[in-house]
């Protein structure tokens, strides 16, 4: 099992909220999966419905670079 890593600092002020449930997102456990590989991560998650938010800077930064690394495996 890969070591759990934080690639994203979750906004502490609770600026993000779930529109459907009306509650602030919290730091929650999530998992990225790609090409038969899985990575446990912590991301902003809705505590009620479980919506996992992938912020733009994370998607275009770390996620994109890990994707590229895996694609060339």
């Amino acid at each position: 099992m890969a070591v759990e890593k934080n690639y994203y600092t979750i906004d502490p002020q609770g600026k993000l909220s779930c529109l459907k449930c009306g509650v602030p997102l919290v730091k929650g456990k999530a998992k990225f999966m790609y090409l038969d590989n899985g990575f446990p991560v912590e991301l902003p998650v809705c505590p009620v419905c479980g919506f996992v938010y992938v912020p733009e800077e994370l998607a275009l930064g770390k996620v994109a670079s890990v994707e590229r690394a895996l694609e060339d495996k």
Partner: peptide, 15 residues
């Protein structure tokens, strides 16, 4: 206003 994408799938993890 903005749009972006990623290829990885993301799911909620229990436990």
């Amino acid at each position: 206003h903005r749009a972006y994408s990623h290829r990885m799938q993301v799911v909620k993890r229990e436990g």
